[in-house]
């Protein structure tokens, strides 16, 4: 019974992670969810169990805090991971950050510093126990910085650079990495934004993620069309890029959302 490998999800209450977990639960998968809100983790676990998960354990931890990361990893060494997914993250409000730059540090701490810390800490465990795949959620925002989300974009670009190196290291240890550059997805993170018709639902994202997991690729865009779009965008001269994505006037008071 305890022989079954478990999906380990950091940011287990994330909308994207949840959508993928639901698909896996229908196949009888087992889960360990790590997140900062005990109540939400319980709701997520109950949902996965009702949908057919064979087991689901939850671990409460603030993933922006290295001590708490250490503590939660203490409880995992005997777990045999199947897919390990990093889905926690903050989008932040650029206008607010510009008014209070200390907020940038908070964002970078979670999305970049502590994510790299977490990845470094779990590398030996992954190499020892093996795992089907390590998945890290990046963003197309990391491909080229825009005025409206430059801090968030920087965090994802940094994470990508790190993961590129990590992938090489892990490959030597027999572990495969999947770095996903996600386009806009409708989740709690983006609910206050007007995403337009290019955005997809978390369920559709999850199906594409399952497909990506069956392939051997290390860096993927989901949905794939963003690969082509950003290939162009990355190479546009700055002046042209600026015309496409002009900086907006700084908002005076951000809406509460």
């Amino acid at each position: 019974m305890s022989d079954q490998r478990e999906h380990v999800v950091f940011g287990g209450t994330s909308g994207i992670a949840m959508a993928w977990c639901r698909l896996e639960a229908e196949k009888g998968a087992a889960f360990r969810l790590v997140g900062r809100s005990g109540e939400r983790l319980e709701a997520a676990a109950a949902d996965l169990l009702a949908r057919g998960a064979s087991s689901c354990h939850t671990h409460q931890a603030d993933l922006a805090c290295t001590e708490e990361i250490d503590a939660v990893l203490e409880t995992l060494p005997h777990t045999r991971p199947s897919v390990v997914l990093l889905a926690h993250g903050l989008l932040g409000d650029q206008a607010e950050i510009e008014q209070r730059p200390a907020l940038a540090l908070e964002l970078l701490r979670l999305n970049l510093d502590c994510s790299i810390y977490l990845l470094l800490r779990i590398t030996p465990w992954l190499e020892e126990k093996g795992c089907r795949r390590l998945v890290v959620l990046g963003s197309v925002a990391g491909d080229r910085g825009r005025a409206e989300n430059s801090v968030y974009g920087a965090s994802k670009a940094g994470l990508e650079a790190f993961c590129s190196g990590l992938a090489a290291r892990l490959e030597a240890g027999g572990v495969k990495l999947l770095f996903v550059k996600a386009g806009p997805v409708r989740t709690a993170m983006t609910a206050h934004l007007d995403l337009g018709p290019a955005a997809i639902e978390s369920k559709g994202f999850a199906r594409r993620l399952q497909r990506a997991l069956r392939s051997q690729r290390v860096f993927v865009y989901i949905p794939r069309r963003w690969g082509l779009i950003f290939l162009v965008l990355r190479h546009l001269p700055f002046r042209v890029f600026l015309r496409l994505f002009p900086a907006r006037q700084a908002r005076t008071s951000a809406s509460d959302g």
């Binding site: 709701a43 109950a46 949902d47 009702a50 949908r51 709690a188």
Partner: peptide, 18 residues
């Protein structure tokens, strides 16, 4: 999006969900 299933008893068919 408030759509978690809270419990589902497969023996009795009682389901509680958001």
């Amino acid at each position: 999006s408030m759509d978690h299933i809270l419990s589902f008893e497969r023996q009795t068919g009682v389901l509680r969900a958001e």
